[in-house]
Design a protein around this nucleic acid. Sequence first.
DNA 1: CTTTTTGCAAAGCGTTTGCATTGAA
DNA 2: TTCAATGCAAACGCTTTGCAAAAAG
Lengths: 148, 148
Amino acid sequence: MKKKFYDFCKKNNLKVTPQRIEIYKIVINSKEHPSLSMVYKSVKKKFPNISIDTVYRTLRKFVEIGIVKEVENYEDFRRYDGFTENHHHFHCIKCYKIFDIPYNEVGKLSINDFFNKNFEILDYKIILKGICKKCKSKKENTKNPLGF
Amino acid sequence: MKKKFYDFCKKNNLKVTPQRIEIYKIVINSKEHPSLSMVYKSVKKKFPNISIDTVYRTLRKFVEIGIVKEVENYEDFRRYDGFTENHHHFHCIKCYKIFDIPYNEVGKLSINDFFNKNFEILDYKIILKGICKKCKSKKENTKNPLGF
DNA sequence: CTTTTTGCAAAGCGTTTGCATTGAA
DNA sequence: TTCAATGCAAACGCTTTGCAAAAAG
């Protein structure tokens, strides 16, 4: 684990600083998939003077080099849906469009027993990512249709 | 559709204003699951003087009364994950913890043919929501473990 | 020694709030 | 005529940026 960290840093020309080591440890050891403010509070125990932007920059770096991932259901902007029945979504990574997918167009999901014993599942969503038909036939897509 | 809107407004003591009608139309008719700024740009065509906070307030109201939904993968804060292998997540709605779920603990998803013909699926994530074992045995959970 | 990283402060930007005015019922 | 909604401006909170000092390699 420590080796993995050093390797990633070396490979990506990142200097290994005590702050980075500590932030990495916190993310790895946390069972809660911490938010930034949680990481910040935690690092401060060891480095009371650390500034919050160091945490921001460090986590961004970690995501960039792939040693840490962002939990999937975060996007920069809220988006709205007038179709209020329960359904899934397909996200096109090229044009940023989101397509509604009715339940029956995706195979039914069967949750296994172990899982059902430990969690009460109220709802689930399948989020598919890929490229829509239109974008597959285009060379490139430069325009951002969302207007930002 | 128009009737649905009037009914929802009446039931929830919302006044039917031209701005609200227009915003609702935009969300309903958009195929793109618009972001706020896209809605804003769109309403401005009809109401050049509309202020952005009206759009904010209106969309919030709509979500509140349930006539519009927020696309699921939006959360207020980024959260981080040191487990970089591909896996699913279970979100506890009580304690806000996110649990890692290996692929094999959830039944395999079979995508049907229609779907595969129209979309190139690069990845999919199953996001389960519910209540974890610990929270099921508790009466209430007042503490927010994420630190915000 | 050179180059990156840190901490600080200020700026940026999406979102929310207070308030007087306007408009729906 | 009453009470909610709008538009405006200011405030708010999370995130980013510029820069000099400090630390890593």
